[in-house]
Design a protein around this nucleic acid. Structure first.
Lengths: 302, 302
DNA sequence: CGAAATCCGAAAATATCTTTCATGAGTGAC
DNA sequence: GTCACTCATGAAAGATATTTTCGGATTTCG
């Protein structure tokens, strides 16, 4: 029963490629064909009419329209306009096509270059696709929360810990749970006014959904940070923050780019909260900095 | 440079405003109204239908179409596409506003943009400054190591854990230590052929230097990942990998960009090792993926 | 002042986009 | 293995948007 129509709305400007990747798994076969064509050649597709694109992809007009809807546009007409815009941007923004996968025999210098490029791309996609309204709502809730619980396992656990660390530094009560049992145990303690944040790239990690559900039932404000906003986790999320999905190769696991994406979201969340609680956050930050100073040896090894 | 007013022009991309000025004298009154509106607010007009633009300018659909023709497009539809492209270009053109620091009163959307931009910058800097020869040496050592110990505290601890997680996934024996005592205790066990990696942005974190020194004394291959290659930590490091340091503002602690930088280095290291041990790494990766599958609630995998 | 040329918009004609609906393929239950 | 069910899919009807047509209104020039 989520019907979160409010969440996914604003017609994406440049985040189209990212959106295609994010939504691709939820698409049906023929819709994927259309999405692929659109992401692959925005300029070309912008020149086509519905019928043209349908023929090109070997599907029907109806499917094209459906795909446009799924991507967040009211109809094909609007998708086409966005496509034209994207094409123009690419034109002026130069061709960024260093899109080769990382291969087993790539020299190390290439690995560095490709990896850096991919991560940059991921950041851009994430920023473009992030719903700032949702983010603002989450920031407001977190800044006012009595306590903040964060759930994440595997790679997402580290992201959760990063967030918890930072929030603690500005004086908020935040805790990251990786043990599913303890997470649920703690979630029971939550109530209205508290905030629970679940981090899962797949959107379907049971160990993370379960505590979020409990928190949701208890009346806490629940947040999902996920790459699959349509996934099960969103059922129990008052707010969904979407991370981007980058293509992955055999050597480059999805965890790598999803982590980058998650970290950006989490950083934005943190900065937002710090802004809102500036009066207390600023001194807290410098205090914690002071406290660590003696741990760095100008010369002393303790 | 011949003047060809007779509309032989290919659909102009960004030269639209100029074209309007050039052709204005030849236009009739109502056409000028339309042309003006179009040149004045491309983005706004792109959102309008023929009828809408006709009403806005107080003219008729026919006039709008005539104007579009005069400007060199086959019809209004194409003018509209060009307009959308122009709008997108203008949009991306006014990006340099993100070079400023993050301020307390920045709207949330700006925070996202600035943060993403900063992190992208950090990645580029890191990639550019990374010594691939050193990296190659570390990769070689790690791929052949009996065991790999990683030291890091605070934010760097998470980076260390990330690396350990990934190395474990491809079958290497890696462990991240955040407890300084345990780190030292474990470091004593190391010997030649083992690898010890210290992660510290400041390059002078005693809790991290100490175990590295022990490992160094025991004959292990020692690595420092630091933003201060001239810092104390490098004394005991056979190889130094330099991370970049980005400017930080009051709200944006250094930990944020150093973490991004460290993660990139660590990712490169991981990929490098995975390449070297491809025979065992590839199956190990897919195995670990398989093993996790049942933890995700059943969901169509198209 | 009158006539011709031109401009202009209402409405018809056409192209394009959207919705509906029936069909068939795939899926899970029995 | 079969049946019932769901859901993806495209054909075609329906709705919009765009283009064209055409006649009235305005301007220009004799």
């Amino acid at each position: 029963m989520k019907e979160s129509f409010s969440g996914d709305a604003p017609p994406a400007p440049a985040a189209l490629a990212a959106k295609v990747r994010t939504l691709a798994p939820t698409m049906t076969r023929s819709m994927q064909l259309v999405a692929e064509a659109v992401a692959g050649d925005p300029a070309g597709c912008a020149a086509l009419t519905v019928t043209g694109l349908a023929e090109l992809t070997g599907t029907s007009e109806a499917t094209v329209v459906r795909t446009a809807r799924l991507l967040g546009y009211p109809g094909y007409r609007d998708l086409r306009l966005a496509l034209a815009g994207l094409a123009a941007q690419q034109q002026s923004g130069r061709a960024p096509s260093v899109t080769a996968d990382i291969a087993v025999d790539d020299p190390i210098a290439d690995v560095v270059a490709k990896l850096a490029y991919d991560e940059q791309q991921t950041l851009a996609d994430t920023a473009a696709g992030l719903d700032t309204v949702q983010l603002g709502a989450v920031v407001a809730a977190a800044a006012a929360a009595r306590r903040i619980d964060i759930y994440g396992v595997g790679a997402s656990c580290l992201v959760g810990m990063d967030l918890a660390q930072k929030l603690l530094r500005i004086g908020l009560i935040a805790h990251a749970h990786s043990d599913p049992h303890l997470a649920v145990t703690n979630a029971v303690q939550l109530r209205s006014g508290d905030v629970a944040i679940a981090i899962t790239h797949s959107g379907s990690t049971g160990d993370v959904i379960e505590p979020l559900r409990v928190a949701f039932d208890r009346g806490a404000t629940t947040v999902a940070i996920t790459g699959r906003p349509d996934g099960p986790v969103s059922q129990y999320a008052d707010h969904v923050l979407t991370t981007s999905t980058a293509r992955e190769s055999e050597l480059r696991p999805a965890a790598m780019s999803s982590r980058t994406s998650q970290l950006l979201v989490v950083d934005c969340l943190f900065i937002g909260v710090a802004q809102r609680t500036y009066e207390t956050a600023a001194p807290a930050l410098s205090d914690s900095y002071e406290a660590l100073a003696h741990r760095h040896s100008p010369r002393s090894t303790r």
